[in-house]
Write a protein that binds this DNA or RNA. Sequence first.
DNA 1: ATCTGTGAATTTCTTCACAGCA
DNA 2: TGCTGTGAAGAAATTCACAGAT
Lengths: 228, 228
Amino acid sequence: MALTAGDRRGRDGIPDATIARLPVYHRVLTGLAERGVATVSSDELAEASGVNSAKLRKDLSLLRTHGTRGVGYDVEHLLSQIGRELGLSQEWPVVVVGVGNLGRALANYGGFASRGFRLVGLLDSDPVRFGELVAGVMVRPVTDLAALAHAEQVAIGVIATPAVAAQQVCDVLVAAGVRSILNFAPAVLSVPDGVDVRKVDLASELQILAYHEQRKSAAGIVRTGVSA
Amino acid sequence: MALTAGDRRGRDGIPDATIARLPVYHRVLTGLAERGVATVSSDELAEASGVNSAKLRKDLSLLRTHGTRGVGYDVEHLLSQIGRELGLSQEWPVVVVGVGNLGRALANYGGFASRGFRLVGLLDSDPVRFGELVAGVMVRPVTDLAALAHAEQVAIGVIATPAVAAQQVCDVLVAAGVRSILNFAPAVLSVPDGVDVRKVDLASELQILAYHEQRKSAAGIVRTGVSA
DNA sequence: ATCTGTGAATTTCTTCACAGCA
DNA sequence: TGCTGTGAAGAAATTCACAGAT
């Protein structure tokens, strides 16, 4: 889990665990396509994605994909199927709230503009930053958030503010109709039903690593690692 | 998950899913302690942590904690038990490789220094950055990485480089004895057994949100959201 | 009366293992 | 023969529901 758990009905049947892996497959396939690879077997793709090949095949079968027995999967075709499933065929307007180092890093993140996401707003509460251009987008006062979110039909809001501001920003986003939120602030957000929140939490990740590190040191034991 | 799956033996029995939630409990409890709250019930703590209370109780019982029936848990005691379990009682030397906006954001991240983690190195491949002070730490050439990791007994390496450099940096970290890696680069890392990798992947998170967003738009349906 | 601790039921996810198509 | 697709088995995680402590 980056780490979001919650209840999630069967939808049309694609499990969360599978959805969470699709972006990885998509990225690996993109790399293969760029290198001109035409077909790939489940073993190869699974290896490159760091998963078990039976799991990969099961994941793909849930997308009603079809490989060719004895051959493998068509890279381009698989790419477009996964892309469509993930909703990458349309463009999602995104706002980033909080233009500190993290907000800047996110705004400048290449994969952002590249695939399906368009940064339509950068907001901050510090007047010093108003008007500044970051990744070609002008920083606006966070008080413009509601209007902007409505005007641009923002689908996804990214919270990169300090923890204390996070819930408040979240509330404004939700009130403005944003139903998908990516939260980088170390705070638990509460939202109404129908709103999805995913969190990215540096401190948690470090602490989880520290736990395992401690176990490793504890008894000079050789153990099996986790690969991501 | 954030998102790391892999095989993980029972250790002394604490499941991964539980470990991944401990940092959240720890953070919430820290907030309660600061506000002078002495005891907390499983319902309250679960609510504030965004989890089901039975799950919380089960998680805590795995730590051999003990609450008082009819009352709840002692906040301070629970904090120290979770902290100890997570290995926060000792200090973990951390290096960050890649001093772009993301690396800076990580270096300046408050929770870094505050709880159990000490930034002992910032490395980059761009000579322009050498010598620069970030969060009080001088940026050094990435070629110093191996020596530094050895000298400082680095436990955790954070990769905040572009994707193309990630595997190479990872290899150096591993060769230098680092067995816990937090990877922010959009790349699948391969590591030997005994090395833990956790990944934080912005593009994946956005794509997962896009998937759900698409489902929501598809059929104007009211559904249950995910809370983090 | 309240709230913990936990067996048992349930659901979700993973892995195995192999039938069957190319 | 090589590799996919999947039923069935297995493992892990979640949730229920309630006995029992305070």
